[in-house]
Design a protein around this nucleic acid. Structure first.
Lengths: 234, 234
DNA sequence: CGGGATGTTGATGGCAGTCAAGCTCGGTGG
DNA sequence: CCACCGAGCTTGACTGCCATCAACATCCCG
């Protein structure tokens, strides 16, 4: 379809998303099945337990992938940013809920059709394998945090990771970072409560490692080294 | 090489390992690069931080994949059984340590050669992608446990999972399961201490849900339903 | 301004970690 | 065959961290 193809060529994540891993003809096949969808903040893309009908690429925004216990406790098992892949090909049912944290744009692929395209697109399949491997590694590193680290290490580590994500380069002092999620989501991500997260942040403030503003959503990191030391004590 | 090929044909995990996903010619290519290696209990296959030189299939035995903090705390992020795939293709460095928990047999593939074989073996690559997706899902479900569940839920859930693994079918009462790991490994797996694991097991005993023998390594599950209820309270 | 959502601070308690002692079991050697 | 030994497991006393409950502050948006 011409419009879809045109969308791909000037897509914001043309290079960074999974589509970038394929040859021209593979991209063309993908473009046939992709459809744009916008999600409002808080809107759910897929529910755990529902039939697994969708895969997607994040074009813009931030989403969370969550798992929940039967008594309603929630763990954020992954955050998705522009360029990230969403979904579980080759699985009949989805066990995770995917929710937009801010207004987001996706490029949606029906799962079964996506799988068929994958079969004829070795470049895409390779790229998806690489990404899944990286996600698995991330998940395992986070299991270390959730199983073994204390509250202070978790919060300091979270901020350090945010800095790395932003790619602020060499500067180690006075880096301003934007916390893209609420305290509640931060707590669910780190396996803590809102109160504990808040307390640890004020503790970092007291240690002169950070300064907060914009209602705690903007963090001025006065010294990355202090933060790194608190995230990884000996 | 004829011997390697012969090894594959009568390999114990011929059907269940990643090799089973490919066509005959794909298997032949794999057999060229696979070499058997035996590991003693406690022996390390690969260290976190070393160059990433190996992938492998588990032929027999049990291995653990661990991540560690700088101050020496360890988290078991995965257990590997016969048929499971080991390693991280397409990554230059390995971030996890892999250790044999009992005497084990592996079929080792040099990483770069394995990657080259994958490029010409779509069936294998597909199978590896499926497995990696499953592992990612497992890791995420475990993040829920590590982040949100209490000690009792973790231990009861661990035993329930062991029963599922063993595939004891329909019988819900008086199932005997073999705990394949020490209390210490169980603790590292669950993000608890040895003492807490032990206490929770005696608690299960007091609740008449299980009986222990062989120094705590054999568990007679008197009622799976009680266990499931304790693992998933409301 | 005013009101609701979000974030912070405080008081308290419980669950799991720590430290320390005893127990069990399997293996070894006299 | 039994006494001994050591590793792994259990139990106990105590501590400390983080969750919980509750009040207050701040921000944002109309």
């Amino acid at each position: 379809m011409m419009t879809a193809s045109n969308q791909c060529l000037d897509c914001a994540v043309r290079e960074t998303a999974v589509c970038g891993g394929g040859e021209a003809d593979e991209l063309a096949a993908l473009s046939q099945i992709g459809r744009r969808r916008a999600l409002a903040a808080g809107q759910v893309l897929t529910w755990a337990g529902d039939a697994n009908l969708l895969c997607a690429s994040v074009v813009a925004g931030i989403l969370k992938v969550t798992a929940s216990t039967s008594n309603g406790r929630e763990q954020i098992v992954g955050l998705l940013f522009a360029g990230d892949f969403v979904g579980q090909p080759f699985s009949e049912d989805s066990t995770m809920t995917v929710t937009a944290l801010v207004e987001s744009d996706l490029c949606i692929y029906p799962r079964e059709r996506f799988e068929r395209v994958l079969g004829n697109a070795p470049g895409l399949e390779r790229e998806l394998l690489r990404r899944t491997m990286r996600s698995l590694n991330d998940a395992r590193e986070r299991m270390l945090t959730l199983g073994q680290r204390g509250a202070q290490e978790r919060v300091a580590g979270f901020l350090s990771d945010l800095i790395d994500r932003a790619g602020c380069g060499a500067s180690n002092k006075n880096v301003t970072i934007d916390v893209p999620v609420s305290r509640g989501d931060m707590a669910d991500f780190l396996g803590l409560t809102i109160e504990t997260v808040s307390r640890q942040l004020t503790r970092l403030k007291a240690l002169n490692a950070v300064a907060l503003s914009r209602g705690g959503r903007t963090v001025l990191v006065k010294d990355r080294m202090i933060l790194a030391a608190l995230a990884n004590p000996d």
